[in-house]
């Protein structure tokens, strides 16, 4: 049971670990790391799904008739690109948050925002106006 579905157990463990980090950590960069682990688990899920037992890489050659399914790998190639873009954007926003707030801890940001809310009418402007 466990050995036959080994890859799926890994997927489940990674997925839960990733989601847990996203939810429990207040540090924005750690959240992104968690998100990455979560996404990676889905990549593994897709890739291991395409494996055909005894199959070889899908390259046409005499003597081989059984091939693994390459489609899932191609799909995940796309999904990895999407994941990298998301990570890059997430990190970029974290950098901007650090510039604007001086911290990347979620609860400290919430505190700063709460102070801000008391004098709501004064609009805080970032980056553009300073330059």
């Amino acid at each position: 049971m466990i050995s036959g579905l080994f890859n799926y157990w890994i997927v489940v463990i990674l997925m839960m670990a990733g989601l847990y980090i996203v939810m429990s950590s207040g540090h924005l960069v750690k959240k992104i790391i968690g998100l990455n682990i979560f996404q990676t688990s889905v990549f593994i899920f897709f890739i291991s799904m395409g494996k055909v037992s005894g199959g070889t890489a899908p390259i046409l050659k005499d003597g081989f008739t059984l091939y693994s399914n390459p489609l899932t790998h191609v799909l995940i190639l796309t999904a990895i690109v999407v994941g990298v873009a998301t990570t890059a954007l997430g990190l970029a926003i974290s950098v901007r948050i650090y510039e604007a707030y001086g911290t990347v801890e979620e609860d400290e940001i919430a505190e700063l925002d709460a102070d801000n809310r008391q004098n709501e009418t004064s609009v805080t402007t970032v980056a553009y106006n300073k330059k």
Binding site: V22, K31, T86, G90, I97, A100, D113, T124, V126
Partner: peptide
């Protein structure tokens, strides 16, 4: 304009992903 736009975008990024 508001810096809270950044945190809003980040939150949406996490949830959306």
């Amino acid at each position: 304009r508001d810096r809270r736009a950044l945190t809003a975008a980040f939150r949406y990024l996490i949830m959306g992903t």
